[in-house]
Structure formats: C-alpha cells, structure tokens
Design a binder for these strands. Structure first.
Length: 938
RNA sequence: GCAGGUAUGGCGAAAUUGGUAGACGCGCUAGACUUAGGAUCUAGUGGAGCAAUCCGUGGGGGUUCAAGUCCCUUUACCUGCACCA
C-alpha cells in the first residue's frame, strides 16, 4: 500500500497555511520561545541541502516546543543586499531587486515544499524599503550619539571589486569575494566606534549561553591584552614616545626600539645620514599590502633611524629602528624590543647584530630548603664531521651527561667551560659557537648529600680538531668519555638541566616563558607576574608609564563603494559639513537605474546619478550632495532578529512591548564562520541600542549553536565545479520531504560536517515505509501495551532530550528502535501507534499527520507532547556484566535493583566465571548495582 | 607559529557521571517468498581462531578493581587567527 508522498505533503502544507497554525502571537498567554536560524542570502543557486539540515533541526525543535505549550516564534526572511546580486545585475543589465525577487520566490517555494513551520507573516527582506528605512534610522542614532564618524584611514582596497573591505572581509590580505589581492589605500570612510565597546562585548558574553567555542571565537577576535605603556625619551630631542608592552618586566633587556614606518616621529628623529635609507624603506612599505607583509614575515626588514631612545629604568641609550613588523594600527605603533625574550625581536636582533641581554632565566628541578648556591657551566661539544656530541657516561652513578662543572673564583664561565672540557676529556681545540641562556637549576647531589641551586651558563662548541691533552680527573670522577649521536642523547640524557641546555643549543631563540629575573636590579629573583606588577608601580611612581589594556578589535569601517546596499542617509553641505537626513524623510530609497558598474575612482555607482546625488542641506537649505557610499552587508543582519519580534511596525523598528514580550532569541543557529563577524556586529549593534534605551536587554541572544556542513558524497565541499551538488528538489520529488528531513537529522553529529549518502537516505525512506506498514497492526485496544510501556516512556524522554540537545541523530535512532519493537508484535494498541506518530512528527511532519488522520485523531499540530513517567522507565529485568580482573566473562539477567549481596553471590557462583576463579584468591569484589560486578583475583 | 576541533568496523556513526565498545542505519553474506526485485521477511556481520580464548576506540606511557571516556606525551587531518608587542 504505497503512499503518494507528493500528494500527502502538498495536502498538509496547504492545510497548515490555510489554518495559519504556525503564527506566533505577540503578547500570548503562553510562554514565548524564539527560535532563529540565520536568514539566508537568496542566491541564484537555490536552497542548499545544508540549509535543509539546520532549518529542519530548528523546525523539529519548534514543532516539539509548540506541542509542549509554547508560543513559538520561528521566523524566516532574506539577507538580500550584497555583491552577487549586484554582479548579476551588472552582467544582465537588470535591477538587482528583480534578481532578488526571483531568487526569494524560488527559496520560499522550496522551503514550503519541505514543510518548515515558519511564521511567514513576519517575512521580510533587508532590501525592503520598509526594513532598510530602520537600518538607516539606526545609523542616524549611531551618528547622533557620536558613534559614527568619517575619517581618512588606510583601508583595504580591492582593485577588482573596486571597493573598500573591512579587516574581516580582507582577512589574510585577500578579498573575500573575488580572492584577489588587497592593497592599502587612504580613503575617507564612515566608521562605527566599535572598538570602544571592546570591554562590554567581552563582558556581555557572561550574559549569554553561547557554546564555548563560539565564546572563545569572540574573545580571540576582540583580542584583549593587559600590559603597560612605557614612555621613552629620545636623546637629543625634546620628544617622548610611548610603547605598549605586555612584558614590562623585561625592560632591562630592551636593547633597541622600533617605530612603525608610519609613526609620526620618524621624519623628525631620523638623522641626516639616514634620511635617504629611511625614506626608501617607508616607500617600500606603503606599497606592500597585508598579504605581502605576512608573506615576507620569514625575513625581518628594517632601517636604523640614527636616533636613540633612553631606557627609563637604566638611562641607557638604545637605537631606534623602523620596521614593518611593528603595526601602526595596534598599540602605539611603537615597541621596545627585548630580543632575549621575544621571538620577533630575537630574529630582528640576529639579523641586525643588536646585543641580546637575558633578564629572565628558566627554572628547572625542584627547589628545596637549605640549598647551597653555586655558579656552574654545561658545555656541549659537537663534532660536525662525525655528527656526534661529546658526553660523559657515568654508568649507574649518574647516567649520561654533557660536560659540567663549577666555576672557580676569578674564573669566567667561559674559562671554566674550556678548563672542564680539557680536564675531563682532554680536548682543547674548540670553537665557541654560542653562549646559551642561563638556567636556574635545583638539584640534589648524592655524593655530597646536599641540595644545590645553581646558575648554569651553557656553551655550545664545535670541535676544530682532535688535539688532546691528558685528562686530569678528581678521585670521584669515574666515567667514560663517549661521542654519541642525537638519537642516543634524546634517549639517554635524563638530566633536566643538561637536556634543556642541549635544546637551547639546537634551537636558539628567545626564552618567552616564565622564570626568575636576573640583570634587572630590583626585579632580580622575581617571577614574571610579580616583576610585571613591581615594574608597573615603578613606572607609575616615576611618571614614565602606566598599566594599559589593549584590544585587537578596531572600529568598524561602515562604507562600501557599491550600489546594492542601504544608502547612508548623510548629506554633505559646503557650509555645514556632514548633516544627517531628517528622520521623517527616511527611507532614502535606492534609485532605479540601468548602470551598476562601480566607477574607476572608487566611488559608488550612485555618484553618477546626479539627480539623486544633488539635494539641499537639511540644515541651511543650500545645495548639497548625498553620501554615495552604501552600508556593508553586515548592517541589515545586525538587527533583523529584533524586527522579527514586531515585523509590521510602521512607527518603530520594533516596539519595546514586543521586545519585552519575546525578551531574547532563545536559540540561534548559524554557521561557525559567522561567530566572529556577524555575531560580534549584531551584539555591538544591540548593546548600542540598549545604551540609548531602545531595546530591553544588553544581550538579545541567549543560546548560540552552530551546525556542521553537508559535504558531497566524496567528502568534499559541495560545488558545481566538483559536480557533487545535491539539489533538495530532486530528493523531495523522488523520496519526499519527510525522508529528506529524516535523513538529514540522522546523517551524523549535527555539529560536525557529514558527507551526503543517497544509500543512507534510502534507509530513511524504508523506515518511513515501515511506520506506514505498522498501521496494519493497530487493533482496537487503547492504552499502551504493557510490554512496550518501559520502552515507550524511555523513548519519550530520549527524543525530548535529544531534540533540545542537538542530538538529532540519536532521536531518530530511538524512534527506529521503537518501531523495531512494534514490528515484533502481532498487535499494537491505538495509543502505541499514536505515540510513535507524535514523537516522529517534529522530524517527519507530513506522513505522521496523514496516518494520524486516518486513525481518526485531531491534527498533530493541535496535539500535546506526551509526558513520560519516571517510574515506568525501568525494565523489570536488567543485564549485569560480570568481569574478572576487568575482563568481561559473562552477563546475567537479574531483577532490577537486586542487592549488592545477591549480585556478588550470583557472580561468584556463575559457571563461566568460576572457571576464571579456579586456584585464585579473591582479593576484592566491586559491585555497581544494575551495572557490573568485577571480581579481582590474584 | 598560536588557538580550537577531530581521530571508534567496509561506510555514516552510538556510548549523559570512568562500569557489558560498536546502539541505530548503510553496505555485505546466506536463505525465504517471487515471472521479476532497487519490495519485504529470516539469520549473520570488528579482527584472529575449529574452539576455549586472545586482540581491538590514531601511536606511546600513566592513574584505576575498571579507561573511547581522566592525566602526560606524540602523530595526522580539519577550521579559525596570523608579525596584535
């Protein structure tokens, strides 16, 4: 008895629409529940099976919540401004709004054919004048509260798209849209003061229930770092510049400073003899875009200005360089460089031969009371020809070590190292490659029964030739001198000090970790944290610095030189400057024209439409010109979830009453790729509206979750060029919307990517057919079948839990298990079957409604979600695992809640278990009721 | 380089607090019913072995009566950020 899914699905979709069963009612008595999916950009390609996955997931939740008595708001709309529609329009010479209209119609038809329970009454597009009127209105609020300003800034400029890109759009120095290289260009742009919200955006996360990875993404993007400002005077100038550092504890190790090439002092302080070189370098940097800068980060570049800065802590003069590894846009555009403790500075210092002063030494070993202090050395000698290292094999006494020794009076560490090598091994012909960072080591010497704390200096030598003198050993020195390979060293050298010294020799670089300070006067002996605090107090007392917090996040560049975006409602008047449009004149409509190509000068196509551009100043009435830039794509999506709460309001963007009723988006689903940008913009926008009293909460989104992608069957991202695209329309035609929905819920972990499999899809079709067949078993009895009761109650609990915890795949498998149990039975009660239909309805709404109607029940959209009974969740019998020494030996069936003693007896006397107990002594028996018995034997 | 994530049969994957690894589905094998099967049903299906049994959650170590799950270490892949001082 084959069902015609196409007819059934159409029938129920029409019925739902006629009855308006999915309408959310503002101010309803029922508790509100707001479920949101990111509204799509209606592309020409139509709905993607990826959309189906997340919309179905949220739809299942919405349908269950409705049955549970909630007033559910599950809206849908269109984020339709943006480049693709504009490109399409340029190509085909039609207005982008025509293309958008067509695409929306396609999307909407597809969505309806899948049976999503959207409240279509609240539908809108960001391109509707009724909507973007409020986007413009909100921009004016930003402006009026001093949060929007126009400024000439170096911006990311895409030569191909002829537009400015935000840092977010130009991540990695590549245009997000067209993939071409981004160059730097000075342009006057509208900016929103987002950076000033950094701390609030960080703190606000505490008032959300975002997934941890989402929160972390936001935290990283905001990029807070706590440090200090330090003022450096410039020698022979009456000038001071400030650097930002998180490591003011290393000030004594600062051996040079670097200014960004764009820094305002560069021209002033550069000495005559350096001027040509500095100018050339500045010019070269200006030509580089972000990508080239990063590409070249393998090799540091820079130029000495000829000027010197005075280190405030020790009054030493240190050279000032300029280099593009210092960014003009972060911190103060200037740094103090501590090559011993910063990787980048180390690299630069190496290249330019700048001194490296260690001010922090790593600590190894464990401190102990009553330690004796010593200074000592560890010498590593390398034979390049043989590729071997010189070691001393102390046998059982001390294992394998490099050469070590204590520094004698009036001996330098280097002399000590050479002496020890000669005495212990005889080798004398050595070339010093490198002095290694000092290490602070704690250890216990068995031969002397004493604890030591040593400061060890490492030396790395190369063996020049084999010339030797005779060894000169102490009595207690009993070792073999052996040359060994790297392998042997990594296996046999266990001593922490020697191993760390060896690692320093092999991988020279900065020591960026914690330790104790040296060469730092009053900071000596302190760890990193204490030294930072002490230094900050010192800087503040001496008025040459202070504690300072910095953020990576910058202000939001809010202009685009495009046609297809919200016009920025600002007017430029020669007399009055920038004047905001009168609010009552909004919306400022996009004109209808035939040419959308951007201009070569980087102005928006709107600039060519003189009728539109020329206007009068709202303030003084003189002739004036409109702003021709439009808003970025992210503008409309920054507040759309507020509009859904009150979509038809002509007086306000949304009334306070409506927003107070819905409170927050309870459950917001979107792609992981939007966690940094869209979500941050939206939160910033909302926080601003809250601060001016226009929304009820500082955070308007409670839970944010993200979904994995649906990949092609070859495990690659679906794309036309790879030919692995699945069109949902085809699947619906052949298998039905319910099958598609069911499969997409079943395909895998919702938060992870999952490949498409048409075979698995067929399995889901079979399951639906099975549910249809089960109807033949339904008899006239009511109430649940006794032997199914426990499983039924378990299933209700599990499905309910899974749908609210994004475990859709296991919700489906639970239903499959239930159906399998039904199939075993000769006869089912009406209630047995009705229950299965209710539980399955959120995921497969059409077929369940149909079967439900055939059974004579009221529609499932009016049904109440069943309640499970905790007391009926357990079976009367339970399987107990019996293991011996943790290995499973048998499983037995016992009445549920059998006592520990009973289980222990049963386990010991079990035939299969006894075999493993023979001749052994029982040490311990662990009994976990209703789970496991583990017998430990010897 | 930094941060985050993932790693379990031939495949997609399960395993709420450490407690019977592989639920559920796909595929595969054999059989039944059939003119036919891409329908349905029955049985089987992690590996080795006739079996008892042994081995199995990327690799190595550890904690525990007991580890996919906790700790240390290491590898591979994915994603995001990338000179952020």
């Amino acid at each position: 008895m084959e069902k015609n899914h196409q007819a059934i699905e159409k029938k129920w979709q029409n019925r739902w629409e006629e009855k308006g069963v999915f309408k959310a009612i503002n101010g309803s008595e029922k508790p509100p529940y707001y479920i949101l999916v990111e509204f799509p950009y209606p592309s020409g390609a139509g709905l993607h099976v990826g959309h189906v996955r997340s919309y179905t997931a949220q739809d299942a939740l919405a349908r269950m919540k409705r049955m549970q008595g909630y007033n559910v708001l599950y809206p849908m709309g269109w984020d339709a401004f943006g480049a693709p529609a504009e490109q399409y329009a340029i190509k085909n010479h039609i207005h982008p709004k025509e293309a958008v209209k067509e695409n929306i119609a396609t999307f909407k038809k597809q969505m309806k054919s899948i049976g999503f329970s959207f409240d279509w009454d609240r539908e809108f597009s960001t391109t509707d004048p009724d909507y973007y009127k409020w986007t413009q209105w909100q921009f004016l609020q930003f402006y009026k509260h001093g949060m929007a300003y126009k400024e000439k800034v170096p911006v990311n400029w895409c030569e191909t798209c002829k537009t400015v890109l935000s840092n977010e759009d130009a991540a990695g120095g590549v245009c997000e849209r067209c993939g071409s290289r981004v160059v730097q260009k000075e342009k006057s742009q509208w900016m929103l003061k987002m950076a000033s919200y950094s701390e609030d955006l960080l703190k606000g996360l505490d008032d959300t229930n975002f997934a941890d990875k989402v929160k972390l993404g936001q935290i990283n993007w905001i990029g807070k770092s706590v440090g200090a400002h330090v003022d450096f005077k410039i020698a022979h100038h009456d000038l001071t510049f400030t650097v930002f550092t998180t490591r003011c504890d290393t000030l004594y190790g600062a051996t040079y400073c670097v200014l960004a090439p764009e820094h305002e002092y560069v021209d002033i302080i550069t000495t005559q003899d350096k001027k040509a070189e500095v100018d050339a370098y500045k010019k070269a940097c200006a030509l580089k875009n972000d990508l080239e800068r990063t590409e070249l980060n393998k090799e540091k570049t820079g130029v000495f200005t000829g000027a010197y800065a005075i280190n405030p802590v020790n009054k030493k003069e240190i050279p000032i360089y300029i280099s593009d590894y210092v960014l003009a846009t972060y911190g103060t555009g200037a740094i103090m460089a501590v090559p011993a403790h910063d990787d980048r500075d180390y690299e630069f210092a190496q290249k330019f031969n700048i001194p490296i002063i260690q001010v922090l030494e790593e600590v190894t070993g464990t401190p102990h009371d009553g330690e004796e202090k010593k200074n000592s050395i560890v010498a590593i000698v390398y034979d390049e020809k043989e590729k071997k290292y010189l070691t001393l094999n102390w046998g059982k006494k001390g294992g394998r070590l490099f050469i070590g020794g204590t520094i004698k009076d009036k001996e330098t560490p280097l002399e000590c190292a050479k002496r020890e090598i000669a005495e212990e091994t005889g080798y004398t012909s050595l070339e010093l490659i490198k002095e290694l960072p000092k290490i602070n080591h704690h250890y216990y010497a068995y031969n002397k029964d004493k604890y030591f704390n040593i400061e060890s200096t490492g030396y790395f030598f190369k063996l020049k030739d084999n010339s030797k003198i005779e060894q000169n050993l102490d009595e207690d020195e009993d070792f073999k001198v052996e040359w060994v390979s790297e392998d042997v060293i990594s296996k046999e050298i266990k001593d922490e000090l020697h191993m760390r010294t060896y690692e320093y020799a092999k991988n020279p670089g900065a020591m960026t970790g914690d330790g104790i300070h040296i060469n730092s006067e009053e900071l000596n002996g302190l760890n990193k944290e204490d030294a930072i605090n002490k230094m900050i107090s010192w800087l503040e007392q001496n008025h040459c610095g202070k504690k300072q917090v910095n953020y990576k996040m910058r202000d939001w560049i809010f202009s685009r030189q495009r046609f297809w975006g919200e016009p920025i409602p600002m007017i430029y008047c020669e007399k009055c400057g920038w004047v905001p449009m009168d609010e009552k004149d909004l919306p400022l409509l996009l004109p209808d024209v035939a040419e959308y190509e951007p201009t070569d000068t980087g102005e928006s196509p709107l600039a060519k439409i003189t009728d539109w551009v020329n206007t009068t100043c709202p303030k003084c009435g003189s002739p004036a010109k409109r702003e021709t830039d439009t808003m970025p794509n992210w503008a409309g999506s920054s507040w759309y979830f507020l509009r859904f709460m009150d979509a038809h309001n002509n007086e306000e963007f949304a009334s306070m009453d409506a927003m107070k009723y819905w409170q927050k988006v309870d459950w917001y689903n979107g792609g992981m790729e939007h966690t940094a940008r869209h979500l941050l913009y939206a939160r910033f926008w909302v926080q601003f509206l809250y601060n001016i009293g226009l929304v009820p909460n500082k955070e308007m989104i409670w839970t944010r979750v993200s979904h994995g992608m649906v990949l092609g069957s070859n495990n690659e991202k679906m794309s036309k060029s790879k030919g692995n695209v699945i069109n949902p329309d085809d699947i619906i035609n052949e298998y039905g919307a319910d099958t598609l929905r069911l499969y997409e819920m079943f395909m895998g972990n919702y938060e992870q990517d999952a490949p498409w499999s048409t075979d698995s899809l067929k399995g889901c079709k079979r399951f639906i057919d099975k549910v249809i067949r089960l109807k033949d078993k339904v008899g006239s009895k009511t109430g649940y079948s006794k032997d199914l009761e426990a499983l039924i109650h378990k299933s209700i609990k599990k499905v309910e839990y899974d749908l609210t915890h994004m475990a859709y795949n296991t919700a489906v498998s639970t239903l499959m298990i239930l159906a399998n149990a039904y199939e075993e039975k000769e006869e089912l009660t009406k209630d047995d079957y009705h229950l299965l239909l209710i539980l399955l309805n959120p995921i497969a709404p059409h077929i369940t409604e149909e079967l439900n109607e055939e059974l004579g029940y009221k529609p499932l959209t009016e049904e109440t979600w069943p309640k499970y009974d905790e007391t009926k969740l357990v079976d009367s019998e339970v399987g107990i695992a019996i293991s011996v020494n943790g290995k499973l030996r048998n499983t037995i069936k016992v009445p549920v809640d059998s006592s520990k003693e009973t289980l222990e007896e049963l386990a010991k006397n079990d035939e299969k278990v006894q075999k493993h107990l023979e001749g052994k002594e029982i040490v311990k028996i662990i009994v976990v009721p209703n789970k496991i018995v583990n017998i430990v034997v010897k």
